[in-house]
């Protein structure tokens, strides 16, 4: 299975993602933001970081970079595109997934493990996953998901909510919401469910010595779903 990770100026989780994808069997290529064309890929990942120093709005400049037209075309033809953290911010700026990511409610950079509950397994990312609650890591300043009332209705009607912040048992309550996200939303799909944007970092949970294994469960399942 072939994957591509895009490196933007200021990306800093691109190599972590490369390590994670290779560990679980992907033949991964790193792709520079200024390239014109994506290599042949089964999965494209927009990694975390601080592309363009978060200037203007997080992800806004990266969303206009040269490679993104090829990524958008790939997504529109049904290809799997996953944006993690800053990658999620880039995805909302392209319009591939709805909404925006605002500054965290309490103006703090948050760096900690969180639990997320899967809402929908009818997609290539979570199909056949034997857990409903996963422990992932978050590290962000702008992860406060927001959308208009109309967009929220549409997102719900189309089952586009991918994951919610919750507690260990999977209870979705306000007190388990780290950043003020509307409805505890931590990740969103596009309508067709081939594009996934989420704030948590599964690539940081692929080694017991690095805090956990739920990322391993996610990536093993993902490559099996793509095969």
């Amino acid at each position: 299975m072939k994957s591509s990770v895009i490196t933007f100026p200021g990306s800093n989780c691109d190599r972590d993602m490369d390590v994670a994808l290779k560990k679980f069997g992907f033949n991964n290529k790193m792709v520079w933001h200024d390239d014109n064309e994506l290599p042949k890929s089964d999965l494209v990942v927009l990694p975390g970081g601080f592309s363009y120093g978060d200037y203007l709005r997080c992800g806004s400049m990266a969303s206009k970079s040269r490679i993104m037209q090829s990524v958008i075309n790939f997504a529109k033809s049904g290809g799997l595109v996953m944006g993690i953290c800053n990658g999620f911010q880039i995805l909302v700026e392209t319009g591939l997934v709805p909404g925006v990511l605002l500054r965290n409610k309490y103006l703090e950079f948050i760096c900690k493990n969180v639990f997320v509950k899967l809402d929908n397994k009818e997609n290539a990312y979570f199909k056949n996953l034997n857990k409903d609650v996963l422990e992932f890591h978050i590290a962000h300043n702008e992860g406060n998901y927001f959308c208009t009332e109309d967009q929220l209705k549409e997102i719900k009607d189309n089952n586009q909510i991918a994951i919610y912040y919750c507690n260990k048992e999977g209870r979705i309550e306000d007190r388990y919401n780290p950043n003020g996200s509307i409805k505890n939303i931590a990740g969103i799909f596009n309508k067709e469910k081939n594009v996934l944007g989420m704030m948590p970092h599964p690539e940081r949970m692929i080694d017991q010595s690095l805090s956990g294994e739920d990322g391993s469960i996610f990536f093993k399942n993902l490559i099996n779903n793509i095969k």
Binding site: L56, S60, K64, V100, F146, C147, Q151
Partner: peptide, 8 residues
């Protein structure tokens, strides 16, 4: 196209 995000 860039300076504003019309969602917010």
């Amino acid at each position: 196209k860039l300076l504003a995000n019309l969602v917010i």
